[in-house]
Design a protein around this nucleic acid. Sequence first.
DNA 1: CTGAAAGCGCTTACAG
DNA 2: CTGAAAGCGCTTACAG
Lengths: 336, 336
Amino acid sequence: MKRPTIRDIARAAGVSPTAVSFALNGKNGISEATRERILNAANAMGWAPNPVARALSISRSHAVGLVIPRPKSAHSSERFFFHFMLGLQSTLAGADLGLMTHMSTSEDDELEAYRKWWAQRRVDGVFVLDPRQDDPRDSLLHDIGMPAVFVGDVQAHSGAVLAQDAGMMRVIAEHLRERGKTSWAYICGRTSKTHIRLRVEALTAYAQAHGVHLQVVAETEFTEHSGYIETNRLLASQVVPQALIFENEILALGGIQALADNDMKPGRDVFVVSCEDSAICRIVTPAISAIDRDPSTLGQHAAQVMIDMLEGATPYTLQEGVPHLIVRASSAGNRD
Amino acid sequence: MKRPTIRDIARAAGVSPTAVSFALNGKNGISEATRERILNAANAMGWAPNPVARALSISRSHAVGLVIPRPKSAHSSERFFFHFMLGLQSTLAGADLGLMTHMSTSEDDELEAYRKWWAQRRVDGVFVLDPRQDDPRDSLLHDIGMPAVFVGDVQAHSGAVLAQDAGMMRVIAEHLRERGKTSWAYICGRTSKTHIRLRVEALTAYAQAHGVHLQVVAETEFTEHSGYIETNRLLASQVVPQALIFENEILALGGIQALADNDMKPGRDVFVVSCEDSAICRIVTPAISAIDRDPSTLGQHAAQVMIDMLEGATPYTLQEGVPHLIVRASSAGNRD
DNA sequence: CTGAAAGCGCTTACAG
DNA sequence: CTGAAAGCGCTTACAG
């Protein structure tokens, strides 16, 4: 009934606990024959390591942490979190690392969670979401010595994974140019966020290089209504855009509404593309073309950076691969 | 730099480690004066318990686990999981319990995760999602002695939290009757699932008690198309329903499409209500009335059952509170 | 190549 | 009311 310990298997194999520990951990100083005998005994007795005891010895918990910040405002990001976690777990599993999660209610709560996890040696490192410039969390984690991987932006002291913002815009741009669209508008939210700034820059550069007329509408709310308003405004402007790129699907929804009110058919008269995908894009009529972000891959990358850091690598940064545009009815026509 | 241990604070307070342990854990056998001296010393030195060491001593990990089953098919449930976890954490935090998560790729993987967590003493108990009748997981967990709380159905050996299926239908029924609707249709999916059977029963009972004409359309796919087909069929039937209750928002979407094709206005000519809420219900035109499931509360309840079980209570079952109907345009008119 | 021993930080019978 | 001691299961210098 009781689980076997290394003492038990030492007794069974007729060796010392030390030898067992060495054999089990693949250290040398054990003859091949002895090692085999020990491993057999361990298997026969169904031995599994007790990570708690191991953690107490070596001061490592074999778990990492993820705090999901400010869930009150995170409603639109549920899909992202879910698939990001999926990716994390799939590669953490390979390194036998568990994942602890915490949902924070405020930034203080988040910092407190890090301190507590670290003080209690509950986790060996953490993933940090929604980074911003000069993020205070980077300093805190560095000060207490806690390994961290930031998701979305580079930091001074921690590892990071980066989304492909420029690459994403390039994919959209190529799609539109391929379909003969030469006048675009990009309806993005506030450009204060790093990743949106990057997108604007990439799109602008592309447009200039290829003689495309581009209007950028910034400083909008992320609501259907503001997508509607801005689209109407664009349709009334001197150069009516042939393609509308929306920061997310909520804005795009408003845009489609505006097109309908102006008797324009999305996908025929004007192309519509969203930088963010969701069930809404699939279900709405017409379905909206959208970038498939694949947060799962981002999670896998983040996990890999963490694993390497825990094995002693200096913090480094990994780029997300080139994203993919799911072409739906809202931008499917007019190939020439 | 090094974290203080109970030895350190024992030395500082001039007592034995035993005394410190007793004082810190609020056991008696320590004079009030001594206890205070010890607590002061602990605070002054910034002592925090090392849960790993404690776990090794008392064989408890102070963490519980949640495995999210079969993520491949879980796309529609991301919102549920997210908010369920939110609820879990908010009450687990009060009991100082951490949460470990795992996403399983198959049922075998899930069972393996339980075994491993338990063998390694990583968690003290687990939450189990998507229960079905005679769930094999109940036996497994019982066999290995792992405390478990099932979410959605009662089990032979474990604790459980139950959704309010009957209550949900009653809320919808009252809303419809209040607005003068006396002929309804309920478009549900397969009735093989326990919770759908419960809903049908509750709705049927209510309709009979109040002289409402009710048609139940079962055995439909959970797709927009099948919502469309079934609604068209209902509109052509002898008794055209004045209100359509859809199992989820995807079916409802198809229903609204069918109404539009028949020149009927949802919310005026025919009421539409969905048993499942999501961004889609808010965003579509007209917005769809829907039950606000609040998976977060369900999570809080589940956590409470777990906490009690870990403190020695026999497994018990908790009912979710009465759900709330969010009334939107699709069923807002005709009050009389 | 191998074993006896101390230690990780806490808890808990057991003696005083 | 209090302390010395053993133990949880593993790791790792240290001696042979």
